[in-house]
């Protein structure tokens, strides 16, 4: 387990009586993209703030690069790039001027660090436009530029695609993927947009009401998703009788009077369909289905879906 870049142990943050994050144990592996998935208010940002030492945990421990963040901020934080909540910059300065301030404070010695970071996110270097005149998408790009400017080993990005247009989202996604694959960066990314996490992350943590419900690789998660054969027939009661009596099927559910699901996908579906038709049933549909990640999310959070 020594390839863990981030590890939390029973991390808890309590505001008054309310636990924003409860006994959270996440494990971010080196060179992987970890997607922290949860609804708005699930505790993603609070978790990230605690990882960066911006908020002190009520209890528990945060270990980054094998060290407790508390007391080691000067050693650990320069190795991290981050974007937390909304982009924060000085409104009276241009994007370049803003980055130059932070580059100076970070002690970035590389000459073209600012221009390079701006180029990566598709913003012009030396532009006269003030940050206050930026669109939401431009602000978000600038914040990503700030996060990568000092070439950190670890990126902690809180909802990085917020405000980006579809092309921007695709660009950022591909850029993040490239950072991980080509340059071996470790990336922790949070989102409430399930499709984004499923397209980008190698490992996924599902957080709900401050509790980490699942933590697995995307591949494991996909294997867990249940597959089934969906039948749309004229009479589900009769179809169920045929399945039980003629084929000995037990693992199925009747959804309503026209729809039923058979969870054994190795079952002879052709023979079953023929049996339905021969017994006078009308079969409108018979096909194999798989739960989406959203279905899985609904199931583990025990509630509604996610965007």
């Amino acid at each position: 387990m020594n390839n863990l870049i981030i590890e939390t142990k029973n991390l808890t943050k309590q505001y008054g009586a309310q636990k924003s994050v409860a006994s959270l144990n996440i494990h971010v592996r080196k060179g992987r993209i970890y997607g922290l998935l949860g609804r708005n208010g699930a505790g993603k940002t609070t978790t990230m703030k605690m990882l960066l030492g911006l908020t002190q945990p009520t209890s528990g421990e945060v270990r980054v690069f094998g060290k407790n963040i508390r007391g080691n901020e000067k050693k650990i934080l320069p190795r991290i790039g981050n974007l937390i909540e909304s982009p924060g910059f000085y409104p009276n300065l241009t994007g370049t001027e803003n980055l130059k301030i932070f580059a100076r404070l970070r002690g970035v010695s590389k000459r073209n660090a600012v221009s390079g970071a701006l180029e990566v996110v598709g913003l012009p270097y030396g532009d006269k436009k003030l940050f206050s005149q930026y669109s939401l998408g431009m602000k978000q790009r600038l914040a990503i530029a700030l996060a990568i400017m000092h070439d950190p080993e670890l990126l902690i990005l809180d909802e990085p695609i917020n405000g980006l247009d579809p092309i921007g989202i695709a660009e950022v996604r591909s850029f993040i993927r490239k950072l991980c694959d080509a340059r071996g960066k470790t990336i922790l990314i949070s989102s409430h947009i399930l499709s984004e996490i499923s397209l980008l992350a190698d490992d996924i943590g599902i957080i709900d009401h401050g509790v980490l419900l699942e933590e697995e690789s995307l591949a494991e998660l996909e294997n867990k998703n249940s597959k089934y054969v969906h039948f749309l027939v004229s009479d589900t009661a009769q179809a169920a009788r045929i399945m039980e009596r003629s084929f000995g099927a037990k693992n199925f559910t009747v959804e309503n009077d026209r729809s039923l699901r058979l969870y054994d996908t190795n079952f002879p579906v052709t023979a079953l369909t023929r049996a339905f038709i021969e017994s006078g049933l009308e079969v409108a549909e018979a096909h194999t289905c798989e739960d989406t990640l959203e279905d899985y999310f609904k199931r583990v959070t025990g509630g509604e879906g996610i965007a």
């Binding site: 030492g53 000067k74 981050n82 937390i84 924060g88 910059f89 000085y90 409104p91 404070l105 700030l146």
Partner: peptide, 17 residues
């Protein structure tokens, strides 16, 4: 109040300053 108004304190704290 510059840092508060511009929301830049988090950027400074994570340098860390």
């Amino acid at each position: 109040f510059t840092e508060q108004d511009s929301d830049t304190l988090k950027n400074l704290m994570t340098i860390p300053v």
